[in-house]
Amino acid sequence: MSTDHQLVFVAGLHRSGTTPLARLLAAHPDVSGFSGTGATEDEGQHLQDLYPPARTYGGAGRFALDPAAHLTEDSPLATEENARRLYRAWEPHWDTSRAVLVEKSPPNLVMTRFLQHLFPTSSFVVVIRHPVVVALSTEKWRRSTSFRDLVHHWVVAHETFAADASRVERKVVLRYEDLVATPDEALGAVARSLRLEGDIPTDQLETHRSDAYSSEWARRAAAGGREGKRVAAVVEEFSDRVERLGYSLTDLSARLSTPLFTSSADG
């Protein structure tokens, strides 16, 4: 579907920083995002009825484990008419006098190829946060899901995105840790990719939200008994896969080089 606007999809797992990132983008004078919609976190997934939202597949910490959540251009939903239908569902929630229109939903992480097929000139801003921090922060409100399973979900979700990323033409991939440590640099890269004039505001970022989770992980790792063994088991099972995605389970401050963080504005 062609449109006079530039559509930008913000993607990243729950608790990865998608909400503050989308709000920062929407604070730019040329950008409109969703606010005051009444939907959870003003997410576009809850403002449409074309594709199932994350809760259909188990919600936070679970959805990416269901193969049906992974939508591509091969989906029977990927039609021109459905592109128009989706745009019409979201359009009332945007200020269409702005040139750039932002939609944010965690399932976008495993739907990039699908959304790109519907809106071929769209861009993606993907934010990735350390799996330990995402798992610990999700664990607080998904107590029925084990920490091990939350890390597994993180790995599968990002492996899915990594496999799709080479076919996504316009994307910026950010580490949450870089966003809060050097926001001007991180958001400057986003602004250049989206061809925005002027800066994206950075005043809404909180810089130390991961510290408590890092301390909790260190405490668990040093603990004896079952708790320490559970940490060791997670490290043994997932270290290699996590490192291929740019992080370390033994050194939470490490940032590993990986093609996943190669961004592209024009393919």
Rank of each mutant, 00 (worst) to 15 (best):
T112D: 03
N82Q: 12
S146W: 00
V126E: 13
S97P: 01
V126G: 10
R143D: 00
N82M: 03
N82Y: 07
W90Q: 10
V133H: 15
S97N: 03
D74R: 15
S123V: 06
F114M: 10
A78G: 05
H130F: 04
V133F: 10
T138V: 08
S123N: 05
L115G: 13
V100H: 09
A89Q: 14
S137L: 04
A68W: 03
A89D: 15
A83Q: 13
E80S: 14
E81M: 05
E139V: 01
S146D: 01
L109E: 11
E139W: 13
P92N: 12
W94I: 04
V100A: 07
L86R: 14
R88F: 02
E91C: 11
L109P: 12
I128A: 09
A89M: 11
P67G: 07
V127N: 04
D95V: 00
S75K: 13
E103Q: 07
S122N: 12
A69M: 07
E73Q: 14
P67N: 10
N82P: 07
V132G: 02
V127C: 08
V125C: 07
F114H: 12
T121G: 14
S105Q: 06
T72G: 10
V126S: 12
E103K: 07
F124H: 15
V126C: 12
H130S: 13
R88D: 15
W94G: 02
L118P: 13
H93G: 02
T112P: 04
P92T: 09
E91D: 12
S144V: 00
T145W: 00
V110A: 12
E139C: 10
K140I: 07
P92G: 11
H93K: 05
A89K: 14
A99V: 01
V134E: 05
V132E: 01
W94V: 05
H117V: 04
A64M: 08
A78Q: 05
D74N: 14
E91K: 15
E80F: 08
A83F: 13
S75I: 13
L115D: 13
E103V: 07
S144N: 01
V125M: 05
R129M: 07
E139T: 06
P120L: 03
K140C: 00
V125Y: 04
N108K: 06
E91P: 02
P131T: 02
S122M: 09
D74G: 14
S144K: 00
P131A: 05
W141R: 03
L86A: 09
V110Q: 11
T138F: 01
L86E: 08
R113T: 15
H70P: 01
R98L: 01
R129T: 04
P107S: 06
H70S: 07
R143K: 12
L86W: 10
P107Y: 09
E91I: 02
L118E: 09
K104F: 00
T112G: 06
D95S: 03
K140P: 00
D95K: 00
K140R: 15
L101M: 11
I128K: 04
S144W: 00
L115P: 13
S123W: 08
T138H: 02
S97T: 14
V125Q: 04
R98P: 01
T96S: 07
S137V: 01
